[in-house]
Write a protein that binds this DNA or RNA. Structure first.
Length: 431
DNA sequence: TCTGGGGTCCTAGGACCC
DNA sequence: TCTGGGGTCCTAGGACCC
């Protein structure tokens, strides 16, 4: 038995937490650069504001309907997420944090839960809400896919009061019959389209398909989904593994054409990615640099550029990664492009205790390595000790990143809320 | 004018091995 | 004139997730 706990309109709920004046008001949260709508409170959904719609298309509508609009405040959401997750960990021994606002609980060998699933679901929901102020839906099923389906039902049907325990076969069947196949976890736009063409429109129709046939047409992944819908577990609770790929990228607030500006952006991303790499005690052997103009603008040709650099020996040294990024960008840069986005990707990742040394390298010298590591450790320590400036620039950085304060193209977050829980000067004062 | 960012897994095909 | 069978590793592309 699995439970899926999913926070309701998570980002929007976080913004409401410290703004009681917004309690029953529509709230939306925008993506980076205030580009798209990425979260809507239930009042905003009721107004018909769609997910992922570009903000400029609904800006006037929001103003007319007194919708409170916020830029993404990632520091706030990450902190609230941690509170929700640690509350869940106090309620179940086996928790898989699946995303910033979702977690699976494994219940089968937890007698407290198994004894009375409804009572347990109720308890989880109310304790999380009491401890964090975030409302959640609790779905329980025989497999992860069924738990997901149950959770979907809690959002879709108010009568569930946020709790759905799928144990009665007749109910499971009924729910599947009235649910679109596109709502199943693992069925995206493409698969939905292809399934529809085969006459499969509801979840139930997918569930009664022959798994072998599904495998033939769609591969082993959807076959597993099909089996899971029938109560046969194919997916386990997963533990947290180091990332196999690390990306740092961002759109610019204005278009960039100069190589100097693009170099600064790319260097900053290389530096950011290097930091993430060290946090998981890894090294990488490949860095990919990429940049592109807007894919939406029909008056200019979509022109993505990218290139790679392979290291002889894996590294997590910011200086080496930034240097490599510069070398790559130098090679791939094209003039007369209005760049809208750039970034880097690190791959060929290994843990630092399992490094494959370069047979021909002349500089395999443990002392040099130790020095590099020590330097990076000091850099990370200083940067965590002293808060970044209001442009998010750390106290210690590589000169080629440039000074953020002077960079016109830095992401815009015009509607940012305070960091209520993570910045001392933003903490609410009660007088 | 204005459209996010960060991940995973699977498959097919090519290069290569014995 | 005739040229096998079985395997691994890597990469790019396609699908999915939040």
């Amino acid at each position: 038995m699995y439970a899926l706990i999913d926070c309701n309109s998570f980002y929007a709920s976080c913004e409401k937490l410290f703004r009681p004046d917004l309690k029953h008001k529509p709230v939306v949260v925008l993506s980076n650069n205030d580009g798209c709508v990425v979260a809507r409170s239930k009042e905003a959904k009721a107004l018909g504001i769609k997910m992922a719609v570009p903000y400029y298309q609904v800006k006037d509508f929001c103003a007319q309907n007194e919708v409170a609009v916020f830029s993404s405040n990632y520091a706030l959401y990450a902190d609230m997420s941690q509170r929700v997750m640690s509350t869940l960990e106090s309620l179940c021994p086996t928790v898989e944090v699946y995303s910033i606002d979702e977690a699976f609980l494994y219940l089968a060998d937890y007698p407290v839960a198994m004894q009375d699933l409804d009572a347990y679901a109720n308890k989880v929901k109310h304790i999380v809400e009491r401890y964090t102020g975030i409302s959640v839906g609790v779905g329980i099923g025989q497999t992860k896919t069924l738990a997901k389906l149950a959770n979907y039902a809690t959002k879709q049907y108010p009568a569930t009061k946020g709790i759905c325990v799928l144990t009665n076969p007749r109910w499971i069947r009924r729910l599947m019959q009235i649910t679109d196949v596109g709502e199943v976890w693992g069925v995206g736009k493409r698969y939905k389209h292809r399934l529809n063409k085969m006459g499969v429109d509801t979840v139930y129709q997918l569930a009664i398909c022959e798994p072998g046939k599904i495998r033939q047409h769609f591969g082993v992944v959807l076959e597993r989904t099909c089996l899971e819908l029938n109560g046969q577990p194919c997916l386990d609770i997963e533990s947290i593994e180091p990332k196999k790929q690390i990306i740092s990228s961002r759109s610019f607030s204005t278009r960039i054409t100069s190589q100097k500006d693009l170099t600064e952006a790319v260097c900053a991303h290389a530096s950011q990615a290097a930091h993430k790499l060290r946090q998981q005690h890894s090294l990488c052997s490949v860095i990919t640099v990429f940049a592109k103009n807007s894919a939406f603008n029909k008056s200019e040709k979509y022109t993505p550029i990218s290139g790679q650099y392979q290291f002889a020996t894996p590294t997590a040294d910011t200086r080496e990664l930034v240097k490599a990024a510069r070398v790559v960008l130098e090679k791939i840069f094209k003039h007369n492009i209005r760049y809208a986005k750039a970034g880097v990707m690190l791959s060929g990742i290994c843990q630092h205790d399992e490094v494959q040394l370069d047979l021909f390298s002349t500089e395999v010298n443990p002392e040099v390595d130790d020095k590099k590591q020590a330097l990076m450790a000091v850099m990370d320590e200083l940067n965590s000790k002293y808060q970044a400036d209001r442009y998010q620039q750390s106290v210690l950085f590589i000169a080629s990143e440039g000074i953020r304060e002077t960079q016109q193209w830095q992401m815009s977050r015009a509607l940012l809320s305070p960091c209520y829980t993570t910045r001392i000067s933003d903490v609410i004062v009660v007088r």
